[in-house]
Simulated assay, not measured.
Amino acid sequence: MPITRRSVLQLSATGALLTGCSTAGGQARPGAPSAPATATATATAAEPTKPPSLPDQVEHGPRTRPRLALTFHGQGDPAEAEAVLAAAEKGGARVTVLAVGTWLDAFPQLAARVLRGGHELGNHTQTHGDIGAMDEAAASAEITRCAARLRRLTGSQGRWFRPSQARLTTPQVVALAQRAGYPHLLSYDVDTFDYTDPGPAAVRAAVAEQAGPGSVVSLHFGHAGTVAALPGILDDLHRRGLRAVTTSELLT
């Protein structure tokens, strides 16, 4: 069958649609984990791919890379917080600190200290109440008041919000956090229960037994057992070939 001008135009349009399908997707948050896009005839190896969107509540990162995130709920004795940060830095780790607003009010110098060490700082509500049980106005205030503290102290409200007193929270809290500028809430898949003060050996064992590539580990400032456990935790991760990075690095 002879190729006419009309058939050439139809083939060109079809090719354009196929190319669009290979690269299209929903809006993706910068730094989210990426999956290779389907190559097109004109694509080059150097072209970036578009990462998929993260879930509303992020529990872990990619399981295919040898890194994980150690996340700390920011409250308690500032000396113990300083000790955790120093131990992380000595061990070559970067951590994510989800700070409680009242803690920042009491110890404002710690916001700059966290960032100065190359760590990441985020929002863990203003008073650490049970945000999932609050009405809309109270829950919104918990998020926005802590965000305002972070902006005042650092110029940024941080990328991450973690709800208080729950690993996963309610749709209402998710919507309020997104309205406040946190598209994705930070949960975790490893809970060390260090806040129950089980002792350094138990905290270390919890990470060793449960954490793997892509894990987001929940830990807490303000507990001496956590401070004592951290050097051993980092030694264990190093022997396993795992590197502790900030949550944003984990999800990049």
Rank of each mutant, 00 (worst) to 15 (best):
D130S: 14
M134Q: 14
H220N: 11
T170L: 10
T154P: 02
V190F: 04
Q109H: 14
D197Y: 00
R162V: 06
L237D: 02
W103K: 06
C21T: 15
V8R: 08
V84M: 12
L230T: 09
A139Y: 04
V58Q: 00
G181M: 04
R29F: 13
P163D: 10
V173G: 09
G158N: 00
D236E: 15
V216D: 05
G129K: 03
L11G: 10
A24E: 13
R94C: 03
P51V: 12
A147D: 05
Q27Y: 14
K50Y: 14
P200D: 08
T38W: 13
S12K: 00
R29K: 07
T64W: 05
L115Y: 01
P198R: 01
A208Q: 09
H220E: 01
T170Y: 10
F107E: 14
L153I: 08
A16C: 13
D235M: 04
A175Q: 15
G26W: 04
T226E: 07
P108H: 12
S34N: 03
C146R: 06
S164K: 10
F72P: 05
A180H: 07
V190I: 07
A206I: 01
R167V: 12
T127R: 12
V58T: 05
G25K: 08
D235L: 03
V58R: 00
A201P: 02
R29G: 10
G241I: 07
A99I: 03
T170F: 11
A41N: 04
G158F: 02
S140E: 13
A28N: 09
P30R: 08
A93Y: 03
G31I: 00
T38P: 07
P36C: 04
A148E: 13
V207D: 01
G92S: 02
Q109R: 14
